[in-house]
């Protein structure tokens, strides 16, 4: 999709150097990761520097990496343990805070991901920063750099509880007035915490604890699919090529 010149990743890597925690180029899309302290400065330079000229912030969203890579159903052990459809599993979105997976694959939980577009150079870029504190994730606001960040940051605040420092008007956006919690966090149950109905006796709308049970039809499964493990395929091909007397069609 991206029309990035092959040098885009190098260009950015050269320019920002140490300030990037990581830079990857996969599927033709460049992703850079910066720390919270550099977040605004890097963004501003990406916008103003002529060789990048990312004039547009296309998208900003929060990501909660809690439970990344964890599955509800270990298929290797399932045959020994008898039948199970994984319905009792605790995958992302189904555990509560007390049941959250302890050993995380990632160090930090909340990230803000932005997608930039340079109309001038016809390029895209993805930039990510992890909020340092899981308990109170704070990330500097980008509203001054790109005005379109305004609502996107309000949305990320609403859904993930990420606080954008310097945002002029950080109110909830999508959820109900007076909503409690941040629904897109992985430890927020899919069915929610409260139900709402109109009470004819009281003559008003009332909130009550949710009654329904969460029901899972398809467990979350992570499968090691060798087709996608290109490293293994490459290694096998190399091994075949390296071993003498084996021309690959024995």
């Amino acid at each position: 999709m991206n029309q990035a010149l092959p040098s885009q990743a190098e260009l950015i890597a050269d320019y920002f150097g140490e300030r990037l925690s990581s830079i990857t180029d996969s599927l033709g899309q460049v992703t850079i990761e910066v720390s919270v302290s550099d977040w605004q400065d890097v963004a501003r330079e990406l916008r103003d520097n002529e060789q990048f000229a990312y004039q547009q912030l296309i998208d900003l969203c929060g990501v909660d990496y809690l439970g990344y890579g964890s599955a509800e159903w270990e298929t290797e052990a399932a045959t020994q343990a008898g039948f199970s459809r994984g319905v009792d599993g605790l995958g992302p979105g189904r555990f509560s805070w007390s049941e959250r997976p302890e050993a995380g694959a990632i160090e930090q939980r909340f990230a803000v991901v932005i997608h930039l577009l340079s109309v001038q150079h016809n390029r895209r870029l993805r930039m990510r920063c992890f909020a340092p504190d899981d308990g109170l994730p704070i990330v500097p606001s980008l509203v001054d750099v790109w005005n379109s960040a305004n609502w996107y940051e309000r949305e990320a605040f609403d859904l993930f509880g990420i606080i954008f420092e310097g945002h002029p008007d950080l109110r909830r956006l999508l959820t109900d007035y007076g909503f409690v919690g941040h629904p897109f966090r992985k430890d927020f149950p899919l069915i929610g915490n409260v139900t709402v109905r109109y009470d004819t006796d009281k003559g008003r709308v009332v909130y009550e604890p949710v009654e329904i049970e969460p029901r899972v039809l398809v467990p979350r499964v992570v499968r090691e699919d060798s087709r996608y493990n290109t490293d293994d395929v490459d290694k096998a091909a190399e091994a075949r090529a390296a071993s003498p007397g084996n021309d690959g069609n024995d």
Binding site: D59, Y68, G69, G91, P92, V113, V221, V222, R223
Partner: peptide, 13 residues
């Protein structure tokens, strides 16, 4: 995606 049969996060712009 984290390799599972369900998306880890979908954001729609």
């Amino acid at each position: 995606s984290d390799g599972a049969n369900k998306p880890f996060r979908v954001h729609l712009r």
